[in-house]
Design a binder for these strands. Structure first.
Length: 561
DNA sequence: GCCGTTTTCGGCCCGACTGTTTTCAGTCG
């Protein structure tokens, strides 16, 4: 049973949680969490690595390397089995409850016999929780509330939802404010909204109360509120001193820890207010993040890279990559028209592309097949190509003739290659039989990539955030096949897809695979989603040269000349 | 459990806020 790196990472994460519940050394817990992150990032399957290879990774030592290899081979390791035997299976889920940490879980279990979320709810309702030392009625209410939230299945939100909530908060804050947190780092989903403001806490808190569902906590330095079913954290900074606060609240947590360690090696202490010289006790404050980085002797790290994935070392050496920027993008490579399920006419697409300053937009309507309404068959695709030529006579933004052709369950394409030959570029995507096993699905997509006419694989994992999980596709194999066949992989910028994940983008880039950013727009407003895709590309360490749609039209692959 | 231009043992980021406290533990970011 060879496990994928993601599966191994999940097991390491689980061990970390179990150790946490058993009140093991917190640094040991962190070591497992870090190992999970590291394994998830490796571009080689750990099952094919030796103990020495693993130990060469900073953060993985002898003990973890042994366990990782055992997990990769058997799915588990003695340490995990021992912990599982000693822990009710419902306990790890309690750690996800807001306000409930490892200490609380341990005491609920040992003192009250709570073994899962149902037990906990019953205990809180029967007022047995308040009997614990250090607990009271309020804590009991907080627990019931957290249980209710968990039952609702509070998932991370899309960047679109997060953007709307952030905008609503920025609109009422009486002063300068900046978005921080994972939204600023460009993550594919967002847990909560983080905002730094130089507004005065008094007036700001009043304004926030007016738009909040409830106020979780409120202070002079920090306020947390519930808004539209989500949590938002607001931190107050003095005007002209926001640099360290923005850095802190942008995170990630792992990145902050690294930065603070670096400060210490230089005899300084970094917190959200500034840098303190530990010899003199003097604190220096900064207006911008760049000034903080400079004081630490580092190049400024773009928010999208701040995950402790090697960017800290690059910044210290001064060799961070120059990342692709939205202004580098010359066109959109995935747009639907009213010839299939989109809302825009071809003229409207050309006009929308022109408005965005694009050289080109690739029109990629669906091919005809089961499931998708109004897909194009060979004859309608030819008619569309004629219509595109007519639009191009007058439009300043060129429409490229493409298609999003279905990859059928057996790996064949839904349109014959003679028809695809007439397209400028072809996107091939899976839209059916999502539940095939990993090997079948991976072979199926690779078979499509081996078609000479296929230039781009659309939304490679097929996930719909909050609605449909990623398919079982083995991205490591797909990336290798993309390198071999010269096929690009799409970064689908639709907020409900955000498909690929950053680690796959980075692995693809490192193997010389090109990435094609497409919005999958079905309406003109959705063309603006390109920025989400650029953020993902940046998170994957992509420079302009790694992204297909930074090319001039004449330099695109396929049959665009 | 990891790691070493102070260390092979003793460290491991730092601060805000709440509830239940009478000086602080726990959680969170």
């Amino acid at each position: 049973m060879a496990m994928t790196n993601r599966q191994v990472a999940a097991v390491l994460q689980e061990i970390g949680q179990l150790l946490d519940i058993h009140e093991e050394n917190p640094y040991k817990v962190r070591a497992y969490e870090r190992a999970a992150e590291l394994v998830g990032m490796l571009d080689r399957p750990v099952a094919t690595m030796g103990e020495d290879d693993l130990q060469a990774v900073p953060g993985i030592g002898k003990a973890l390397a042994e366990k990782i290899l055992a997990i990769a081979a058997t799915g588990t390791c003695p340490e995990r089995d021992r912990l599982l035997a000693a822990t009710p299976s419902g306990l790890p889920a309690l750690l996800a409850l807001q306000g409930v940490g490892p200490k609380t879980v341990g005491r609920l279990w040992k003192v009250l016999g709570v073994e899962g979320i149902d037990d906990l709810e019953a205990a809180a309702r029967n007022r047995r929780v308040r009997a614990l030392k250090g607990f009271g009625p309020k804590k009991e209410q907080e627990i019931l509330r957290a249980v209710e939230e968990a039952r609702k299945g509070a998932e991370r939100m899309t960047v679109a939802e997060a953007g709307l909530i952030a905008a609503a908060i920025l609109a009422v804050l009486p002063g300068e404010a900046r978005v921080a947190g994972s939204l600023r780092r460009g993550r594919s989903t967002v847990g909560d909204i983080d905002i730094v403001t130089s507004a005065l806490p008094g007036p700001a808190n009043r304004a926030l109360r007016a738009i909040a569902e409830s106020v979780v906590e409120e202070g002079e330095k920090k306020t947390s509120l519930r808004i539209r079913g989500r949590q938002a954290d607001i931190r107050y900074a003095r005007p002209g001193e926001e640099g360290a606060m923005l850095l802190y609240l942008t995170g990630s947590k792992a990145f902050n820890i690294r930065l603070r360690e670096i400060a210490r090696t230089q005899g300084m202490r970094l917190n959200e207010y500034g840098l303190t010289d530990m010899a003199t006790g003097r604190i220096s404050v900064y207006r911008t993040e760049e000034e903080v980085f400079a004081a630490l002797g580092m190049a400024p790290v773009p928010p999208e890279l701040r995950e402790d994935r090697g960017e800290v070392e690059c910044a210290l050496r001064g060799d961070l990559p120059l990342l692709v920027d939205e202004t580098d993008i010359r066109g959109d490579l995935h747009v639907h028209s009213d010839w299939s399920d989109g809302a825009m006419s071809l003229d409207a697409i050309a006009a929308a592309g022109e408005e965005r300053g694009y050289e080109y937009v690739l029109v990629t309507d669906h091919s005809a097949s089961l499931g998708i309404a109004r897909g194009l068959d060979a004859s309608r695709l030819q008619k569309q190509q004629e219509a595109i030529r007519r639009v191009n006579r007058t439009a300043s933004c060129t429409l490229l003739s493409g298609v999003e052709v279905d990859i059928l369950a057996d790996g064949r394409l839904a349109l014959p290659s003679t028809v695809l030959d007439d397209c400028d570029l072809v996107v091939a995507s899976v839209h059916s039989a999502f539940r095939q096993d990993a090997d079948t699905l991976t072979r199926r997509v690779i078979a499509a990539m081996e078609h000479e006419q296929v230039d781009i694989v659309g939304h490679p994992t097929g996930r719909l955030l909050g609605r449909r999980p990623a398919t079982a596709i083995d991205m490591a194999r797909v990336i290798d096949a993309a390198a071999l066949t010269g096929t690009a992989l799409e970064i689908n910028a639709s907020p409900v897809r955000m498909d690929l994940d950053d680690i796959y983008i980075r692995q693809a880039k490192e193997k010389g695979v090109k990435l094609a950013i497409g919005t999958d727009a079905h309406s003109s407003a959705e063309l603006s989603h390109i920025g989400h895709g650029v953020a993902l590309a940046r998170r994957g360490w992509c420079s302009a040269g790694d992204v297909l749609n930074t090319c001039r039209r004449a330099d695109l692959p396929g049959r665009c000349q």
